[in-house]
């Protein structure tokens, strides 16, 4: 189990990021990338236990007696969710500043970049990033709270 997690987690995370970045033109997007990221975290939780993220990866002390809602990672997940919602709403409101309807999107193609040659920067990416943060934050909060029961 731990071996599988060790191999799979980086692959899943890279795939999630690629889905997030291509989401506005190809299959993918913030939601599915967020779900995949959560899957990677779930794998870590299943293989190593709930406290591993705090104690093993980040090197923090975990106080055993406290409730799951005071867990520092859960607080961070909730912050991710709020941040994501703020990003998504702000990206929609941004269009209003340019006198366009709510949620209007546009894109810019940046030319002559080494290796990539050209990159399409879409404003939809900001919204997708917001969705991604919301999904990751909410699903991980649910996962760790329900997992702790």
């Amino acid at each position: 189990m731990k071996t599988t997690a060790r191999i799979m987690v980086p692959i899943i995370l890279v795939l999630a990021i690629s889905l997030l970045l291509q989401g506005h033109n190809l299959p993918g997007g913030g939601f599915i990338a967020g779900v995949l990221t959560t899957v990677a975290f779930a794998l870590v939780y299943v293989a190593y236990g709930l406290d591993y993220l705090d104690a093993g990866v980040l090197g923090r002390d975990v106080e055993p007696g406290r409730g799951i809602f005071e867990h520092r990672s859960v607080t961070a997940f909730r912050r991710t969710f709020i941040l994501g919602l703020a990003i998504a709403v702000a990206s929609g409101l941004g269009a209003l500043a340019f006198d366009e309807p709510f949620l209007s999107q546009t894109f810019v193609i940046v030319e002559s970049i080494p290796i990539y040659h050209e990159i399409e920067v879409a404003s939809a990416l900001a919204f997708d990033l917001g969705v991604y943060c919301v999904v990751v934050g909410v699903l991980l909060t649910i996962l760790s709270v329900v997992g702790a029961e």
């Binding site: 269009a95 709510f102 949620l103």
Partner: peptide, 9 residues
């Protein structure tokens, strides 16, 4: 009397 708004253009 009435107005329509196309979200996202």
């Amino acid at each position: 009397g009435a107005a329509a708004y196309q979200v996202g253009g």
